[in-house]
Design a protein around this nucleic acid. Sequence first.
DNA 1: GCCAACGTTGGC
DNA 2: GCCAACGTTGGC
Length: 146
Amino acid sequence: MTNESKKYWLIKSEPNVWSWDMQVAVGNKGECWSGVRNYQARNNLRTAKIGDLAFFYHSNEGKEIVGIVEVIKEAYPDPTHQIENSPWVAIDVKAIKPLKKSVSLATIKAEPMLADMVLVNNMRLSVQPVSEEEWRIICAIGMVDL
DNA sequence: GCCAACGTTGGC
DNA sequence: GCCAACGTTGGC
């Protein structure tokens, strides 16, 4: 695993369904990221590799990036959709660290350098790529070193 | 709770 | 293959 091949993502969760605190509570064993029912998001999940990092975004309630997770298991059949030839996949992620300062959607929208983020332009996509530049900017705003 | 934006479905 | 109807997401 080299730094060059590492990709960055943003994954969304409604905190009343699966929150950052719950993600932290399961610790290093991580948790299965499942239930994605959107082809574009599914394709992104398939692309995610072990060691890739992702922002953990709270949708609906909070509307902010609260932490960083790492992919620890690559795409496998979604355990919440057990039918033959299910098109859906899941990955496993584990919490790495919280942002010292969470980065809200309003903050992202207000930052011109982040105007091209998928989060801003395709609000409904639940698993989305983040460019290295966007990653660095948000880490800086969130006062986290990664 | 409302509704705009988007994705999916199904009739034709 | 088009497009209207419907369902879902998610900000407000």
